[in-house]
Design a protein around this nucleic acid. Structure first.
Lengths: 339, 339
DNA sequence: GTGAAAGCGCTAACAG
DNA sequence: CTGTTAGCGCTTTCAC
């Protein structure tokens, strides 16, 4: 058997076994922390492992165990989106961070189209033990059906939870938006308007309904709402339309920071100032708002934490431990200079 | 042999072979596009594959072929960095985009410390066929030694290419910075200053030397240089120091957009305007600059392309095809309203 | 507790 | 061109 031990390449289980003077089975047990190995033998094996600098071969292990120890993260490309939206980077970071302490690997898949055939094949082809799919504002759950065959955790509430049992972690958009509007009225603004997000996206509708709810809670009301697509230019456009209505406005709640920044320019174009004439509050707390002039008051969304929770949930799911179907994260109002 | 065909789970090569009435070897050949299979047999096999919805088992394949078809992407966490720097997201996107058309998978590894032991083990443990490491401004090549045992491609020129033969793709920082300064003098600014990046990072030194070179090319000179760490606050600080010198300044070249944005605030604090009193040009073209007021004139860095090229290079390296050691990408001056 | 033996699904000589 | 024959490195009954 000794002659079977090749010298080049990586050390194998067999080499460790030889070195430690035990069988491969025993080494395997030690590696997998099996309880039924006598402490002394385990020690010897452990020493051999360290000595040889042995690292188990993932492919071989996964071939027999039927588990890949890999988790896919699917993010929609939407061309510019991934690039322009700091949110994704943060979520990925959170996921990677959590996974670092586990034996799982993160496989990134940036989707060109929506739910391509190729990606499906990959996910269903036994390449990963589970999948994470993020869509930020869109609520796109075109991967919903996958969950019948593979553990899947979504980032963001699904637009319509048809299957009814999708696992996801989301941010409490409603409460967060309430705190934003609350802040506006608390600082004496009474003629409020809002730049809403698309009404076919969960965060879009939640943040808008929070606007109305909070207003009426204070005996106020407003029909000054214009919709944007979450991009800076769309925010500027919406603001111009709002201003064009000719009604007085002293406070704006934008459904996200990018649109709030867009609103800044429209407000300045009109010769008005922030927050002098119009106070502005955004949502997300990304670098668009934090580096703007004046720094934007906004609602912080715990993106990294969202990634962590998603990772935590998918791992639990894979390992068949009990998990909540949905996890909702709290937001935090960050008061800066715009309101 | 027929009784060996289990019905549950995923279809195997053997099942396809049975269905097509050929040997497993033949199926394998078809799957791997081997030229030596008669067209008609190939067709039958192909049909069986489609019929059974067969997808080759990666683990089994990689176990025997000794290739994982996976490529790792290592990015330094640097806590806030990944989160705040749009550059990383863009590179990752480029990499993923290129890899989408290949059989390779992208494994993301976000580094906590610098070059942790755990990551090394992972990379050297045969989990991936190659690695991509990005460090943006830092030029950190603490993974250099890895390249002796694993194909590695770096993003950004190494600080000191000790081993002399590291593969990397970089942006032409010098030429890009020259075009920025050139633009400043072309628009009539003569009292130029620069906010340089750290002088222990390649982009920091290249962009600064370009400043001096371009100036002298026009018979100008300037000792108005202050250094920042590429973050917005550091840019503001540097600008304040510059202004505090009391010498007249009518143009600023900031080594990156984030610092340029920081400079904006310092300039305004001083009661000056952009570009009225001081023209500002940045470098990178990220969303910090594009959404600022006024929109920042800057040097666009092809981040996505950089990712694509890195991916292309690593794949070529893995497949032992000839590749250039270094690839340098051109930049492009984006003229907006700040200069 | 520990070892022996039997594969996991696939590729790669080697014959025919 | 196609089938046969060996394993790749590891886990896992099943005996001892």
């Amino acid at each position: 058997m000794a002659e079977k031990l090749r010298s080049g390449s990586m050390p194998t289980l067999e080499m460790v076994a030889a070195e430690a003077g035990v069988s491969r089975a025993t080494v395997s047990r030690v590696v997998n922390q099996s309880p039924k190995v006598s402490p002394d033998v385990a020690a010897v094996v452990q020493a051999a492992i360290e000595h040889l600098n042995y690292v188990p071969n993932r492919a071989a292990r996964s071939l027999v165990s039927r588990r890949t120890q890999a988790i896919a993260m699917v993010v929609p490309e939407s061309a510019a989106k991934v690039f322009d939206d700091p949110f994704f980077a943060a979520v990925v970071q959170g996921v990677a961070q959590y996974l670092e302490d586990t034996d799982y690997t993160l496989n990134m898949i940036i989707e060109s189209g929506s739910a391509s055939h190729k990606t499906r094949r990959y996910l269903l082809g036994g390449n990963v033990d589970g999948a994470l799919v993020v869509s930020h504002h869109t609520g796109d759950h075109s991967y919903s059906e996958l969950s019948r065959n593979l553990p899947v955790v979504f980032g963001g509430r699904p637009l319509s939870d048809v299957d009814g049992d999708n696992y996801y972690v989301d941010v409490d958009n409603f409460t967060g938006a309430c705190s934003a509007v609350e802040h506006l009225v608390a600082s004496g603004r009474t003629r409020l308007a809002t730049i809403a997000g698309p009404q076919d996206m969960p965060p879009g509708v939640d943040r808008l309904s929070a606007f109305h709810t909070t207003l009426s809670k204070h005996g106020l009301t407003s029909d000054l709402v214009e919709t944007g697509d979450f991009s800076p230019p769309s925010g500027a456009e919406a603001m111009r339309r709002l201003l064009a209505r000719g009604e007085p406005i002293d406070g704006i709640f934008a459904a996200n920071d990018q649109m709030a920044i867009g609103a800044y320019s429209a407000i300045r174009e009109a010769g008005l100032s922030v927050p002098g004439d119009i106070a502005v509050v955004g949502f997300d707390d990304d670098n668009y708002g934090s580096t703007a002039t004046p720094p934007l008051t906004t609602v912080r969304q715990p993106s990294i934490e969202m990634g962590r929770r998603m990772a935590e949930k998918i791992v639990a799911l894979i390992e068949k431990r009990a998990v909540d179907t949905v996890t909702t994260l709290n937001t935090e109002l960050v008061i800066r200079d715009s309101a």
